[in-house]
Simulated scan of single mutants.
Amino acid sequence: MPQALIIGAGDGLSASLARLLAREGYAIALAARNTAKLAELAAATGATAHACDAADPAQVARLFESAGEAEVVVYNPSYRTRGPLAGLDPAEVQKSLQVCAFGGFLAVREAARRMVPRGRGTILLTGASAGVKGYPESAAFAMGKFALRGLAQSAARELHPKGVHVGHVVIDGGIRSARRPETGEDSLLDPDAIAETYLQLIRQPRSAWSWEIEVRPWVERF
């Protein structure tokens, strides 16, 4: 049974992805700082739950040692702080960079160490509009997501020829959730639909690998 590791698991997109991959026959490992919130999802998908601070090198290394030989690794964590540049708290900006980008590096590094010797595997990094468009009063998040995108592009160019597929998914729009209900006709991204796109990336033939794909609601402006 192939294994999938989802880092930064919770409700929304990561939950949709866990359910879909479980239906597709994957053994699921879920990682989050707080595993208590994963109990229902883990029970529904037969997943194992692992406590992990995604920005801590030692914890990420232990996660990969305990989670098994994952064929698919998804990095989903984000941290956002808003406000005018002149008033931003440096500690909050640093946390955005640590969670959005440095944690992604740690996950890619650990995954590559295991996948490259096997000559196969898929690493998917969850991006955002902020990774291609810097919005006002969102400098910290833009910095983190731009860095994650650069990591994905560099890693893809290095690892694709070694048999490891690296993909960056730009989520360009709001994601529908209980906290963010639909207000129009498909005006928000359906997390189940996004999960289907991840599955398509996982299944891409290596003769036509994508390193990046954007998903957005049909009403979202480019």
Rank of each mutant, 00 (worst) to 15 (best):
S66G: 13
P217E: 05
A44R: 11
A43N: 12
D186W: 00
D56G: 10
L5K: 06
D190H: 07
F222Y: 09
R221W: 07
S96E: 12
A139K: 04
V60I: 15
R221H: 12
L41K: 12
A70H: 04
A55C: 13
A43V: 03
A107K: 07
I171T: 08
F222A: 04
V132Q: 09
R113I: 00
P217H: 03
S187K: 07
A22D: 05
P90M: 02
G104Y: 10
Y75S: 09
R109E: 13
A193R: 13
V166I: 15
G144R: 08
A147G: 14
P217V: 02
A208E: 13
T48K: 13
A155P: 11
G25K: 07
S187W: 00
S210N: 12
L85I: 14
A54Q: 15
L125S: 06
A86Y: 04
P2Q: 05
S138A: 13
K162Q: 15
A58L: 14
V116S: 00
A156Q: 08
Q200W: 12
A147E: 10
R176M: 01
Y79F: 15
L5Y: 10
A139H: 04
L159R: 01
S154E: 08
R19C: 04
L159Y: 02
I194K: 05
Q98K: 10
A4C: 09
A29G: 14
N34V: 03
A51F: 03
P205K: 11
D186T: 03
E69M: 01
H50W: 12
E214Y: 01
A91L: 11
I194W: 03
L106R: 05
R62K: 14
I7G: 05
